[in-house]
Design a binder for these strands. Structure first.
Lengths: 222, 222, 222, 222
DNA sequence: GATGAATGAGGATTCATTCAT
DNA sequence: TATGAATGAATCCTCATTCAT
């Protein structure tokens, strides 16, 4: 995120009382974003455990002390980063995918749309993958991590639900989890390639999901 | 791979020179296995980066010094462990799956058999998953890791090949990679559950793979 | 002692130049008191070394920057605090105890009065104890600390002198130091208790001092 | 403590099995003593909080890592040091002072003996004073510190008891605490002086205690 | 070979102090 | 002045690795 240097030129009088404390926070907010971006880079490069706070600070171009002015510890950085990514992801698909009518939208489209959307998001934020995927993430973070995962699964369940009305809940959960797993696996391949090859993997992923889900759906829709 | 080239300060008869080292190597081999087992435990518990050599030595019931008598550094442990696991895995399926005639063995069976075999192996050796899955594995190891992965992929390609004779090589590679990815994703879910639920996930994994592959195969077989 | 010599960039009339600074000093004085109060709290809670300037600023409800507008460094805070406490203490007993005539006032009364007075002061200002008592106080502060201590000792010598006219100076000094030490020891016990128990310790302290000093005094007075 | 270089020259055969692990521990034990000595020096110089583990290691002539091979953290060093000092102190006076018969031993002697013994101990181990006296000692250590203090008080109570048979327990406790406080105050003065002046302070301390306690004792003995 | 001690660079974190606004 | 962000040296502690025995 580029330095926005928002003009602090006195705009009005009424907001002055609010402005003073906010101008301070503005710089802080910028720093926080900057640090989280740096953290995203470092995390996705080295993984959480091997990432050093000094490296993050260096990547952000600040001193270690500055980092600790905004985050109490390394964990908190990962947690905040995860939570922000999740928020952004939620927004990203909420706008389009929420209302899905199986009678109107065919599975193909749902899958293709969802995958495209998620892939786009994950290509923009490779840290998301690092955070979701780390088997070395300790303690408190795992919770956040799990929450993130659970949210994803729930989301998929929600999308799935209208397509498989008769299915028992545990089966739907299993399917949703499987979908998320497949998606992550595909994502890894996609992120590892570029250009046409990447596109090919995207298609491959869609195929896997479609073939996996169609039979389930078909029973109902047809 | 542990240091092997130690010169026995040639000074005795051929038999003696071979005998003593051999006994030593026997003890050494035991130590090495012991250490690798410990490493497997620690790696699969904490991940590679967070695993400390001291912890591995402790787990193995030896002193840190002893560990370094057999491995030059931490990396070497992971590499040797990975290589051994791969060997064992290879043997594990070589004995049965090598000759597959699509005309004789239906895809269902191939998939079910392969999955069962791999799953059994991976449940016996959870470290394999940890090693394949770690995004935090630094430098040199990644190569071994990749080699391991590549071997797996090649293996799957080999299995796949007779079923999709007309397919272009890159497509087969993509499919194989996708299969390995799906398998790893399924494995994670399987390892995370027990009993009936685990079985359900095993079945789910087979379903995914079968549905994914049948269309490809069908074109040919039918 | 806070920076005072700030040049008001001489540019106005004498009155203005005096007036503005004065108002400033007034606010400044309040800030300083505020900060010293906060410092007293923090010092007596955690000791000098463990006290952080940030904590003091927070306790005072100001930013760290503000603190450094009035004190050049942490040491200066302790020094100024000590010096103010000493001043207040001096005033506190000067008003009553200065003129003591052994022929008129019996030792019992002198001791009881002095102890009560000091105790009252120290209960009001627990930081005094923390400052006098800290063995962890570094460098320059020790001097101030010693000055404070020396002042106390001198004061006690002065009180003692008329009661032991014949005694050699070094002996009086020793006795005075011993008294101060005993007082501090008693004070610690007193501050550690409340209510009736506290009163009991106060009495105990008076007993100790009385029994210690009476023989010395008795030789003369009787 | 000087390096003892105990001769490991094979002495016998029977103890060999015990000797091997012990020789290792021997070096370790030596290091521990060395480190504790260094810690004693540093603690009594700078106080607990300001003492850095690096400084302790440096003082002991070892690397920081070595220190942590024997102590899990800074606290543990202080705790172990305190506990060792207490043990040594206990031994120091247990041998002589345990059986005191008021009818046989006059108070003067008891006090003089006890003080001399304690003073000798504390001059040998100035860290004891630092540890008992620190107002900045955090958390867990305070407990050990308090235990140390409590032990002292109890010890004094035990010594006192036979001399004041009729006194109520709380009063005895108060008196014992007062004695310990007076002792610590005197100790500070004693440690701060040398030669004849030091002796004079020792005498002064004895006088204080004697005059404080004689009235209590007198009631009974007479 | 085996042991446990030794090393020291590096990592997370704190804190006195300074600076831009 | 006041603020809060910025700094970087210093702290506690860990860990891969080496060494003496």
């Amino acid at each position: 995120m580029p330095e926005k240097t928002e003009k602090p030129t006195a705009e009005t009088t009424a907001t002055a009382a609010e402005d003073r404390p906010r101008r301070r926070q503005a710089r802080g907010e910028r720093r926080i974003s900057q640090l989280l971006e740096a953290a995203a880079t470092v995390f996705s490069t080295t993984g959480y455990t091997a990432a050093s706070t000094n490296a993050i600070a260096r990547e952000a171009g600040v001193s270690p002390g500055t980092l600790y002015q905004f985050f109490p510890n390394k964990e908190a950085i990962a947690i905040e980063l995860g939570s922000r990514l999740m928020h952004e992801m939620r927004q990203s698909y909420d706008e389009v995918l929420t209302p899905i009518d199986p009678a109107v939208t065919p599975v193909e489209e749902v899958i293709a749309g969802t995958v495209d959307r998620f892939i786009a998001f994950n290509c923009r934020h490779p840290a998301f993958f690092a955070l979701m995927h780390g088997p070395d993430i300790p303690g408190r973070i795992a919770e956040e991590h799990d929450a993130l995962h659970a949210t994803l699964v729930t989301r998929v369940e929600t999308i799935l639900a209208p397509f498989v009305p008769g299915a028992p809940a545990p089966a739907v959960t299993r399917t949703a989890r499987m979908c998320v797993g497949i998606y992550m696996a595909g994502l890894e391949l996609i992120l590892a390639h570029e250009g046409a090859e990447r596109e090919a993997y995207v298609q491959e992923l869609k195929d896997v999901l479609l073939r996996y889900l169609r039979p389930l759906v078909g029973d109902v829709v047809k």
